[in-house]
Simulated assay, not measured.
Amino acid sequence: MPETDLRAFRLTLLGMFRLTGLQGDVRLPGSVQRVVAFLALRGGSGRSRLAGAFWPDQGEGQALSNLRTAVWRANRALPGLVLTEPRALWLSPEVQVDAQRMTALAHATLSGAGPSRDPIELLGLDGELLPDWEDEWLVVDRERLLQLRLHVLEALAEQLAVQGAYGLAMEAAIAARRGDELRESAHRAVIKVHVAEGNAGLAEQAYQRCLAVLGRELGMRPSAETSALVAAARRSVVN
């Protein structure tokens, strides 16, 4: 029997859990999905730690037995999906994981190394991390990925505006604002793109939206940085 090429498999965690290969979806039981997702997001994990995270109300022996069963089911569905050692487990690094890809692209963008040469992929990596799951351990990962995405969208908008790619810059800025309407820096990213493109009127509209949202929801006004940006755009029209 030929060895499975795991590089042909994609694990989706943004928006839903889905493991897909050339022949379609690989179906995994819920408990197995959670083990796979944990390994994809957290990296290698000790068996005891993983068993305790998912079966905290059971004794260590039973929890480890449940973990062994979950790993067996994972590798039965897709041989080599979970790599095993006596005390630790890993997800195969050959499987493509959308959350990992987004993180890598985000770090490259924030460090100035890219991905401005091809921003479409980053813009397409959208969606909340496993939104239908209520697992407590996911709270930290959800917040981490959300904040990383918002920061990188704002940075991407600025990079693209400098390059004159105003359409893509605005798409990134609006995606950041849509991700968190109360985030003033996301509103400011939209304003900056309008200003860079010479659209003072649209910059004013975006500022008024920011003013209304922050005032209504938080009882606050925009910062001096945001206000100064719009004031400069107003002066450019007068002059």
Rank of each mutant, 00 (worst) to 15 (best):
Q208Y: 08
R178V: 12
V213G: 01
G198H: 07
Q208T: 06
S185H: 11
R177S: 01
H187K: 04
A165R: 10
R221Y: 02
G215C: 13
L202M: 13
V193T: 04
Q208E: 13
R177I: 10
M220L: 12
L211S: 10
A175D: 10
S223C: 02
A172Q: 02
H187R: 04
L168K: 10
A161P: 05
A200P: 01
V213R: 00
A203M: 01
A203C: 02
A169R: 05
T226L: 12
E197K: 12
R221E: 08
V190Q: 04
Q205P: 00
I174S: 03
C210G: 03
H187P: 03
K192D: 15
I174R: 10
G167W: 11
A176M: 12
V190R: 03
E204A: 08
Q205C: 09
A173I: 08
R183E: 06
A165Q: 13
H194S: 00
A186L: 09
I174K: 07
G219S: 03
E197C: 08
P222L: 09
Q208L: 14
C210V: 12
L218Y: 07
E171S: 05
V193G: 00
E197Y: 15
S185M: 11
V190L: 06
A176I: 15
E204V: 09
A212Q: 08
A173G: 01
A186D: 07
L211P: 01
L214G: 01
V190S: 01
Q205Y: 04
L168N: 11
A169F: 10
L182N: 06
E225K: 12
V195W: 06
L214V: 02
A176Q: 09
L214N: 01
N199H: 14
E181Y: 15
A176D: 09
A173T: 04
S185N: 10
M220P: 00
G215W: 14
K192H: 15
S223Y: 05
R177V: 07
G164L: 07
G215Q: 13
L211W: 15
G201M: 14
R216D: 12
G198T: 08
V190K: 00
V162W: 10
R209P: 00
H187D: 06
Y207T: 05
A175G: 08
C210Y: 08
A175L: 15
H187I: 12
A224Y: 05
A169N: 08
E217W: 03
R178L: 12
E184K: 01
E181M: 14
V195S: 00
H194M: 02
G215E: 14
L214H: 01
Q205S: 10
L182F: 03
A203R: 00
L202P: 00
A173R: 01
G201A: 15
A196E: 12
E217A: 10
R177N: 03
I174D: 05
A165W: 10
A200Y: 07
E197H: 14
R183C: 06
R188T: 12
A176T: 11
R216Q: 12
G167A: 07
N199L: 14
L168A: 14
G198S: 07
N199E: 15
E171L: 09
V190E: 09
E204C: 03
Y166A: 03
S223K: 01
A189K: 02
A186E: 07
R188K: 02
R177L: 11
A196G: 08
A200T: 04
K192F: 15
E181L: 15
A212K: 05
P222V: 06
L211E: 12
V195H: 01
R188Q: 09
V195N: 01
G219T: 05
G167Y: 08
S185Q: 13
A196K: 10
G179E: 15
A206E: 02
